[in-house]
């Protein structure tokens, strides 16, 4: 049980970090697409979602692994 609680805590703390990161990257994309260029709304939204998704995929394991290492007693 203790192990499961640790896993949940790691997942929660990691989410608090990687979710804002991916959201931030996605919004940055949207900002650039809006400010620099005349893209259709659908293209901007589609691109934002795709970039956000890939950023999430990139950041999730990096952040989770780091939080796990910081939490591990041997670190």
């Amino acid at each position: 049980m203790e192990h499961e609680e640790v896993e949940k805590e790691v997942a929660r703390k990691s989410a608090l970090i990687y979710l804002p990161i991916s959201l931030g990257v996605a919004l940055l994309f949207l900002l650039v697409a809006t400010v620099f260029g005349n893209y259709p709304l659908v293209a901007k939204i589609g691109g934002t979602i795709w970039v956000g998704l890939l950023s999430l995929i990139v950041s999730m394991p990096i952040v989770t692994a780091r939080i796990k290492r910081l939490r591990s007693p041997s670190s």
Binding site: A33, F36, A43, W50, V51, L54, I57, V58, I62
Partner: peptide, 17 residues
Amino acid sequence: ILGVHMLAVAVFVFWFF
């Protein structure tokens, strides 16, 4: 795997903009 996803982002952003 992570490197590939980063590359996919870079490719998308390059071709988009």
